[in-house]
Computed example of a mutant assay.
Amino acid sequence: MAKPIREGNGPRHVAVIMDGNGRWARQRGRPRLFGHHAGAKRIRELVEACPDLGVRYLTIFAFSTENWKRTQTEVAGLMSLFRRYIAKETRALCEENVRVRFIGDRVRLDAKLIRLMDEMETYTEHCTGVNLTIALNYGGRDEVARATRRLAQDVAAGKLCPDSVNEETLPKYLDTYVLPDPDLVIRTSGEARISNFLLWQSAYAEYEFVDTLWPDFSAEEFGMLTKAYGARDRRYGAVKA
């Protein structure tokens, strides 16, 4: 039975840059894809931990627009992994009352993968528990460029007045328009950069950069980071009187 989401002072929306799969595999003398398969198993563990932590939205960075630069073997292996993951997890996530969405540009993805993504979104669209968003062929700059193009088309068509365009307008054209902005962004593997992930949405997010490689990142560590967030003083540019 799916757990109800516990409300608290922790983050409502957590975004995760899942980094370190390749290094984790290399430390064990295995190919990089071995690490990606190990990392995929961590996703369910975090999703299942979310209700008790009060996390209603979880967004994970699965494949970036820059990841096409990797070897053809690795890219093909990742695409195969995505297809298998979706086929395997759709029913199980639905039973956990998890709604799944995908963000990113689907144009470059193969037809079978796109079909599976569409089916997963449709199959879980009635779910009211944790919202899992998977960023696949996603890049923050690419997202803003695509959003700006759609906005410009509406202006040209007379649907939108140029004078009405402001920082409240553009988010309506982003891939994440139905999601709240992330409160906390976590990156694993010891790298301290955001790698073109949710650039607009994370303007006021808190960041945690941890040394743990993604396949070793546990629900316990996830819980500690979300609880630490609750102790932070969030002023959004203001000061206390």
Rank of each mutant, 00 (worst) to 15 (best):
I134S: 10
R56H: 11
Q153E: 15
P4C: 05
L179R: 03
R101F: 08
A25I: 12
I114G: 04
E119T: 10
V107N: 04
K172D: 11
G54M: 06
N67D: 06
G230E: 13
F102S: 02
L213A: 00
I5L: 02
S164T: 15
G158Q: 07
I114W: 05
C50H: 06
L53H: 02
A49Y: 00
G140E: 10
T133K: 02
Y123K: 13
E208G: 00
E74H: 11
G223H: 04
E168H: 12
R101S: 15
E206D: 10
V155G: 11
R232S: 03
V185D: 03
T65M: 06
L174I: 01
T188C: 08
L81N: 09
A62R: 00
I186F: 00
R141P: 08
R70S: 09
A145D: 14
L199S: 07
M79Q: 04
T65L: 08
G237T: 03
Y177N: 12
Q201D: 07
Y57P: 02
K240E: 05
A40I: 07
A228H: 00
A49D: 01
T128M: 12
G8H: 13
A241N: 08
M1P: 09
D163Y: 08
A87D: 11
A192P: 01
R106K: 11
K41M: 13
K159E: 15
I194Q: 09
K240W: 07
A135Q: 08
A147T: 13
T124Y: 06
F197C: 05
R150V: 02
R115F: 04
V14Q: 01
L78I: 15
Q153K: 14
L136P: 06
Y207L: 15
I186N: 03
E206N: 06
G230C: 06
T124L: 03
T90A: 14
Y123W: 05
